[in-house]
Write a protein that binds this DNA or RNA. Structure first.
Lengths: 340, 340
DNA sequence: CCCTCCAATCGAACCGTTTCGATTCTCCCT
DNA sequence: AGGGAGAATCGAAACGGTTCGATTGGAGGG
């Protein structure tokens, strides 16, 4: 690879002049600018990014760290991030957090390869993030709350209003006339699942339903996990009207289990999810759920990051509203009677 | 941030010794190693990746450049890449190719920020890739053939056998007893779509069906595009048995259009897709399709890249087999009669 | 004709590592 | 005691840019 020195030699100017041609073209005379340009073309010179990053001590790159890159869910998020980053002249790179410690995306955090990070990956421990976050590397987390022991000047958060979502789901199911519920939760240490759980119970309390009678099964946010959780509920022979699953994947798994047990959805039991993934619209029956504005989350996260990069932080945590999406999986028994 | 010099000063050793502690610990005595380690911990020293990259002239990072990061389709691919990269001690980063020229992922290619690239993004022109690919930056393309004018020592390709897929699809539809076909193609400049098209027609020729009578509509690989394409076919009043769409998205769009026109799938007309995206299994009726082994593609691409990085190239292009996945959207009329 | 000023260009330091050859120190052998 | 081997450590030169203060040259004013 040709270096800036090669260009300088060929164009018979100093290195600094070549640099100037790129950074402040108006500062160099037309004739030399042309000469430099020719040399650049001829040598196919391309500036070395790592050298520049080293010198100016920033990379103009921000990282989006995800558990895995699957799902149209994440893609919306990244789209939001990219849109804002692009306007700011920043490059966005995404990294899944693969198996080996130290190998994968953590290297981006660890070795000053990015100027900021957006994190949505429960497998990266908060403790670790606290170590990495600093003035020159602010972090926005999307998957955990800012508690008193997870708190730093350089960490902020953006989240959908999970509690509200749980509440909306609960109210919707109540409005549809259901009374006997079960909840399929995510992993015990998932803050998101916990908040959804809480909102759900709040709605039930308000309707004076005794939540102590409600079975809760903890699963893992996967389709298969939801299926197994539903299997557990069915085996126990609970009398149930409606299932609220902490995400759509598990809700879809639950529907499969129900189908296999010849329980009709929503005639015998209603199912409600959370996230509004693309699949929710296509399964049969289509899945009622809570829509998370992932694109907005991405945009907001990037804006917060920008604020942190410029030292103009604008508060710790931003909560974005969610919306109820009613589809067929929670059709009311009454409505059905009215129709038939 | 503390630098290696700070550590050296605090531990009262030279900079090179500190470096040695990391790279070849056995070469430094236990006592100093301990002292250095303490200094590192105390200062929270972390090596600067860009400085190292500059010095050793490689980044140990490979980029996966995608059109957008959407779809479980891509995620499988990335999973395959990551698995291999991880074993090789390489970091994988993914970048969507957002709007602004020069801003986005191209910077990774342009500025020597990665050691190799895997490209699946038609919006990056082949011409451009030819400019970037070189010994120190080999490229594996996943979305285009290696033609005589797009050919370089440093570019190789991995692809699913699109032609075979088209052929399998054609044969399957013929086996099911369908005879009057339409093809919904991708963009005219999509090589993949073209190959699927070719394979499809080869199957029809073999069955002595006159392909001249077969309407072809070119669309854009999106669900909505498929819907509009199907609309066009329906308006023209073609008599049709079966639709073959060049990807699942368009096939699903086509099914929607058919439903809106009260044409039953597969009773009135069969629909077949290509890709085997996750959704295909869930739509109603479930979509017959051709399965592309994206995970394998990712792994193979990464292995090829590794070969190129080590100078042990193993041929230009690798074609991976595809498989037929039969579901409900292509149930045979005869079978149906047999059942009813 | 000389001085001043500004535009154009240059030289050199610096960013934080790695690496290689040189140096010092220790210990052992004859 | 002298010499040599080998381990431990060090110094300094890269890597390829950016940036700032210094230098040069020519135009314009008095």
């Amino acid at each position: 690879m040709a270096t800036i020195r090669d260009v300088a030699r060929l164009a018979d100017v100093s290195v600094s002049t070549v640099s100037l041609v790129f950074s402040q073209p108006h500062r160099v005379s037309e004739s030399t600018r042309l000469r430099v340009q020719q040399a650049v073309d001829h040598l196919e010179y391309r500036p070395n990014g790592t050298a520049r990053d080293l010198r100016v001590r920033k990379t103009n790159t921000i990282g989006v760290l995800l558990h895995n890159l699957s799902g149209p869910f994440y893609s919306e998020l990244i789209r939001g991030v990219e849109e804002v980053a692009d306007m700011l002249g920043l490059t966005t790179i995404a990294a899944g957090c693969s198996s080996h410690q130290g190998q994968g995306s953590v290297r981006l955090l660890h070795e000053a390869r990015i100027d900021g990070a957006i994190v949505l990956d429960p497998s990266i421990e908060s403790k670790e993030l606290l170590r990495y976050a600093r003035e020159s590397l602010p972090v926005v987390v999307l998957d955990r709350p800012l508690t008193h022991d997870f708190h730093s000047e350089y960490i902020s958060a953006v989240a959908a209003d999970h509690e509200l979502g749980g509440y909306l789901a609960g109210n919707h199911l109540l409005d549809q006339g259901f009374r006997r519920f079960a909840f399929i939760a995510g992993p015990v240490d998932s803050g998101d699942s916990h908040l959804r759980h809480r909102g759900f119970f709040r709605a039930l309390h308000r309707a004076e339903i005794d939540t102590v009678t409600i079975p809760v099964v903890y699963s893992d946010f996967t389709e298969n996990g939801g299926k197994r959780a539903m299997g557990t509920l069915l085996e126990q022979g609970w009398k149930l009207d409606a299932i609220f699953a902490a995400n759509d994947e598990m809700a879809i798994g639950a529907m499969q289990a129900l189908e296999e047990h010849h329980v009709s959805v929503p005639n015998d039991v209603a199912v409600m999810g959370f996230d509004d993934i693309r699949l929710a619209r296509y399964v049969t029956p289509s899945l009622s759920t809570i829509h998370q504005p992932m694109y907005e989350v991405g945009k907001t996260a990037m804006k917060k990051l920008e604020g942190a990069l410029n030292g103009t932080s604008d508060g710790d945590v931003e909560i974005l509203p969610v919306t109820l999406v009613t589809r067929s999986s929670t059709l009311a028994p009454l409505a059905k009677e009215g129709i038939s």
